[in-house]
């Protein structure tokens, strides 16, 4: 689901053409495409760096956590998940909508990590660390696009 699909389905539910206001939103959204592609590229290229530095930051704040337990398999799977969330954020940035992140990664997130017996508070802190690392790499303007998606993950964990 993207902002484009959303407005088309809205118009269709009323069997009408998109209204002028909706077309203006559509056009304004597409105009920001360059910036969205730039951010998505930056996240893709720096995923490893964000995860590595984010983990270091996280373990400083929360030393007792599964990813820091000395079990390399646990560390790897935690960091893999962290990388996935960065990828899902890149999708949402491109779509201009929280839907890809929600549909793939936050619906059911609490239930999943609870069943994996990973403390939700720790994941929240970890996501904060990833956010802080990601923001370091970009301009304030680009950061303003990215931050709300990290916050959405954090909100869905609490």
């Amino acid at each position: 689901m993207s902002i484009v699909t959303e407005l088309i389905l809205n118009a269709d539910s009323e069997a009408r053409y998109p209204a002028p206001k909706e077309l203006r939103i559509f056009q304004d959204f597409l105009k920001t495409g360059e910036q969205r592609i730039r951010i998505a590229r930056l996240l893709a290229e720096n995923e490893q760096r964000i995860v590595q530095n984010g983990s270091a930051r996280f373990w400083e704040r929360v030393p007792v956590t599964p990813s820091n337990s000395g079990n390399p398999r646990k560390t790897a799977s935690c960091q893999r998940d962290q990388g996935w969330y960065i990828r899902l954020i890149a999708y949402s940035i491109l779509a201009g909508s929280e839907k890809p992140l929600e549909e793939i990664g936050t619906v059911g997130i609490k239930e999943m990590y609870n069943s994996l017996e990973i403390p939700l508070r720790n994941i929240v802190e970890c996501m904060r660390c990833l956010k802080e690392e990601a923001v370091l790499l970009m301009s304030p303007e680009d950061a303003a696009e990215v931050v709300p998606y990290f916050d959405l993950i954090i909100r869905s964990l609490s």
Partner: peptide, 16 residues
């Protein structure tokens, strides 16, 4: 994606 993003104006105008 980029070429789609760039076509926004022409698509919106066509729909109007």
């Amino acid at each position: 994606l980029q070429s789609y993003f760039r076509s926004g104006e022409i698509r919106a105008r066509a729909a109007t």
